[in-house]
Amino acid sequence: MTSVTFDEALLPAHWRDFVALTKPRVMTLVVFTGLCGLLVAPGHIHPILAFTAILCIAIGAGAAAALNQWYEADIDAKMKRTANRPLPAGRMDRQSALHFGVGLSFFSVILLGMATNWLAALVLAVSILFYVFIYTIWLKPRTAQNIVIGGAAGAFPPVIGWAAVTGDISALPVALFMLIFFWTPPHFWALALFVKTDYAAAGIPMLPVVSGEVVTRRQIWAYTAIMAVAAMAPVLLQLTGLVYGVTALLGTALFAFFAFQVYRRRESDPTRMQPERRLFKYSILYLFLLFGAVVVDRWVLA
């Protein structure tokens, strides 16, 4: 035995790689929308229990992300953007990621059930299972509409936040669910237009890869129209007041303006895709604005 290179795989994974496995950056929007659902719900919740509920939503989202990467390690290895994640880079063995994800899933669901109520815990469990089984395993490798239905997983947090306080699910949390659900396609496909991720090499049928750029632009516009209806629904159904109504109207008008520009353009060079980048960046701000407005609305009225 001479000069054996030290195998990184023999090392126990670094704790930072377990954190990376939970995709902390994706979590911010999940935590924020969950918090908004919790804040607009009628009734009282002890601040410590509210904190615990949000913590459980975050941990559940992290668990789902870990399980997603456990399942997709081979696919991630084929794409430049994801090749440096802990599993494809060989800094962690797959079984650790599986145990970590399953463990966090059970932990978050049980803790949420004990701290708040079991309806909230059930919705959290459904959202994790939906993300892992319906989206990651079933739809993502099969259909170009994968992210449309998969977006439902990201739409659950406000429902969970609401249910943690009230123990029920009424019209407003469902409306907020619909808003995130129909927001996801234009948000994601705007990104897919200018980030030419090598989905084709990995065998993932993302819309721009399967149907081309023109169809993607058309679908962004179509889903923006449906999203606009979902955005105005809470105020039209009188679930929220004027603050939300005005914010949603102006915010959605700007969203539609950016989406229309993207719809009309024909450009396949990512370096010249400023409007597409603008739509993507604005879409994130848009969701923060509208959810913030729901909270302000509820607190101004009260």
């Binding site: 126990p12 670094h14 704790w15 002890h46 601040p47 410590i48 229990l49 615990t52 913590l55 701290a115």
Partner: peptide
């Protein structure tokens, strides 16, 4: 060692959280 340290801190935080939940409940 670093993993054990992080695990210890997390467990400590959990003790505090469960204490808080108990009082709140």
């Amino acid at each position: 060692k670093s993993r054990a340290l992080v695990m210890g801190l997390l467990l400590g935080a959990l003790v505090l959280l469960f204490y808080g939940i108990t009082i709140a409940k």
